[in-house]
């Protein structure tokens, strides 16, 4: 296994870890953090694949796509955070679902 493959597999692992976090974490900030880590995983896979070539220099095309992706990620994060703060200010809660879907903090606990 080459150095590149280690990074590619780490990217896949990051994607899977944050996919789990995205599904199971109710708080919107956690979900936005998970999405950001997820995009980091995708970028690692892309750049890893860019080096899976015979030529000494990596393939510049995935690099350009990742650069584009980083800038798009920050703008979508900013928009998501603005929406999350708006949801918080309108409802007092930072989740997407109605509060009875999950246990309320003071009711839960064991």
């Amino acid at each position: 296994m080459s150095q590149t493959d280690v990074y590619t597999l780490a990217g896949a692992a990051l994607f899977v870890i944050s996919l789990y976090g995205l599904i199971t974490r109710p708080h919107l900030i956690h979900k936005i953090l998970a999405l950001n880590i997820m995009s980091g995983g995708v970028f690692l896979v892309f750049v890893g694949i860019a080096r899976r070539v015979m030529t000494p220099d990596p393939d510049p095309l995935p690099h350009a796509m990742v650069l584009t992706g980083i800038v798009v990620t920050v703008s979508s994060t900013a928009y998501a955070l603005a929406l999350a703060k708006r949801i918080y200010s309108e409802t007092g809660a930072a989740v997407l679902d109605a509060p009875d879907v999950f246990e309320r903090p003071e009711a839960g606990g064991d």
Binding site: H27, A84, K85, A93, A94, V95, R104, P105
Partner: peptide
């Protein structure tokens, strides 16, 4: 802004 807690609901 969200007062930094992972408890996402308004508590009493």
């Amino acid at each position: 802004h969200m007062r930094g807690r992972a408890a996402p609901y308004p508590t009493d």
